[in-house]
Design a protein around this nucleic acid. Structure first.
Length: 274
DNA sequence: ATGACTCACATAGTGAGA
């Protein structure tokens, strides 16, 4: 089963590239963020094309900002928009949707940006992450948290750590909030697969940042043990950031081996597959 | 270089992104 997560920065603007990418990469489950479309507009734009490609879908959007969606060819059951006690910022924001796909509880998440440390929006980001942690703790054991977490887990996940001091995405409280999620028993599967590589998922549109590979790794897949143990491949699809009209984020791709028979117990892939 | 880009929206400048 191939799971992908992609902040598309407007599903409407990205529609041609998104549909071509679905045909090219053939993911079984897709988590989208920053769709910037209402649910009605998302369906108008994609229902026929996604049906032709074999995907069921569910979206949670609000229009101008935010918006998340799930596409699946392996089942899309018990869809939940938002999560228990999800904080609001002035009004409710469309930043989370989850469903059970192929036996895994898959979450498509667009974590608040935070804007400036110690701002109202920053405190909202931390409260949002804490509530997410509690909701995931109360949910199914086999889970994959996928999306734009808007946190660089370590200094190795930004192109120039010194340039980020005092800015959001790298502050200790944000990293502690991510740590509280990982403490649920989750694994950052791309970093586990590439422990020492310079691997980014976001590059600013300006100043040739992608060309210079001056990016950040803020789009993550956090998998519970039963899911992480099935990871056959994990990578970032840099090709999708190239060319004309890209998102500023690249998709994160994770391939899972088939779920083992329950009698076999947890499956641990050989080192060569990790 | 105090910049640079892209998106949505009361389609012209703003707010937001990270």
């Amino acid at each position: 089963m191939r799971i992908a997560t992609w902040n598309v920065n407007s599903a409407k603007q990205r529609a041609p590239r998104l549909l071509a990418w679905l045909e090219q990469r053939r993911p079984d489950v897709v988590c989208l963020q920053e769709t910037k479309l209402t649910d009605a507009a998302f369906a108008d734009l994609f229902a026929a094309e996604l049906d032709a490609l074999g995907y069921a879908f569910a979206s949670h959007g609000q229009g101008q900002w935010n918006g998340v969606a799930l596409l699946s060819r392996v089942g899309l059951d018990a869809v939940e928009r938002g999560f228990a006690d999800q904080p609001d910022f002035a009004t409710a924001e469309a930043r989370a949707i989850s469903a059970t796909c192929g036996g895994v509880r898959v979450h498509s998440l667009y974590v608040p940006n935070g804007r400036e440390p110690d701002s109202d929006h920053y405190r909202y980001k931390l409260a949002w992450l804490a509530a997410l942690r509690d909701a995931v703790a109360a949910g199914p054991a086999d889970v994959a948290l996928c999306g734009d977490l808007n946190i660089a887990p370590t200094d190795a996940d930004v192109f120039d750590p010194a340039a980020f001091v005092g800015h959001t995405h790298v502050t200790p409280p944000e990293r502690a909030a991510l740590g509280a999620l990982l403490d649920l028993g989750l694994t950052d599967v791309v970093r586990e697969r590439w422990p020492d590589e310079r691997v980014f998922s976001y590059w600013d549109y300006r100043a040739g940042m992608f060309h210079k590979n001056r990016g950040m790794r803020i789009d993550l897949v956090l998998a519970s043990a039963g899911v992480a143990g099935r990871v056959a491949a994990a990578w970032i699809d840099r090709e999708a950031r190239k060319g004309t009209g890209p998102s500023d984020h690249a998709p994160v791709m994770v391939d899972l081996d088939d779920a083992p028979d329950g009698d076999l117990g947890p499956m641990v892939p050989p080192p060569s597959a990790r």
